[in-house]
Amino acid sequence: MTNAIEILGFVAATLTTAAFLPQVYQTWRTKNAQSLSLYMLLIFFVGVLSWLVYGVLINSMPVIVANVVTAILTFMLLFFKYTYKN
């Protein structure tokens, strides 16, 4: 049963993390981050880092992996927001 729960966690982590890929790609491709909310990205980034710490504390690989990748993608969006100022 534990393996099924871990698999479900990895599936959920993959889907929610992958949801950011189109936004990162579109922002990079268009070089336009004007429509991205800086405050939303900052709040989300802090939340993702909090989930990452939580995942480490409970030793949950799906939570850790998903939030490491999501933190990187969110950081990229923050970088684009700063770099592509209009």
Rank of each mutant, 00 (worst) to 15 (best):
V53Q: 09
L15V: 14
K31D: 03
Y84K: 12
Q26M: 11
G47R: 12
F75K: 08
I7H: 07
V53R: 04
T74F: 02
R29W: 00
S50D: 01
T83R: 15
I64M: 03
T70W: 08
F10C: 06
Y39G: 01
M40S: 11
S60I: 07
F45T: 00
I72W: 03
V68Q: 10
K81I: 03
N59Y: 13
V69H: 00
L36A: 06
T2E: 13
L57V: 10
I58R: 04
F44T: 15
L8N: 02
Y54G: 00
P22H: 05
E6W: 13
L42D: 01
L77N: 05
V63A: 09
P22M: 05
W28K: 10
F20D: 01
S35C: 01
L42P: 01
V56S: 09
G55P: 08
Y25P: 04
Y39C: 02
L73A: 11
N67T: 01
L52W: 11
F75E: 05
S50F: 11
A13I: 02
N59I: 00
V69N: 00
V56M: 14
T83Y: 12
F10L: 12
T27M: 05
M1Y: 11
F80Q: 08
L21M: 13
T27A: 12
K81R: 15
L49V: 09
L77S: 12
I72H: 06
K85E: 06
Y39S: 09
V11G: 01
V56F: 15
Y84F: 15
F75Y: 10
Y39T: 10
V65K: 00
V24R: 07
V46S: 13
Y39E: 06
I43F: 13
R29L: 08
Y39M: 13
G55D: 05
S35H: 12
Q34S: 12
P22W: 02
Q23P: 02
V63K: 03
V53E: 03
F10R: 02
M1W: 14
Q34P: 03
A19Y: 03
L21F: 12
A12Q: 08
M61E: 01
W28V: 09
K31M: 11
M76A: 14
L57E: 05
E6D: 07
F75Q: 07
V24T: 02
L78K: 03
P62N: 00
T2D: 13
A18F: 13
Y82R: 15
L73S: 06
P22Y: 04
F80W: 04
N59K: 10
L77R: 11
Y82G: 05
Y84P: 04
T17S: 07
A71T: 02
L21S: 02
L21P: 00
Y54F: 13
T14H: 09
T83C: 09
G9Q: 10
N67Q: 12
E6K: 13
A4P: 02
Y54E: 03
V53G: 14
N86S: 13
G55Y: 09
F10E: 11
T14R: 02
A4Q: 15
L15N: 03
P62L: 03
T14S: 12
P22F: 00
F75H: 07
N59A: 13
T16L: 14
N67G: 09
K81Q: 12
V69M: 12
Y25A: 15
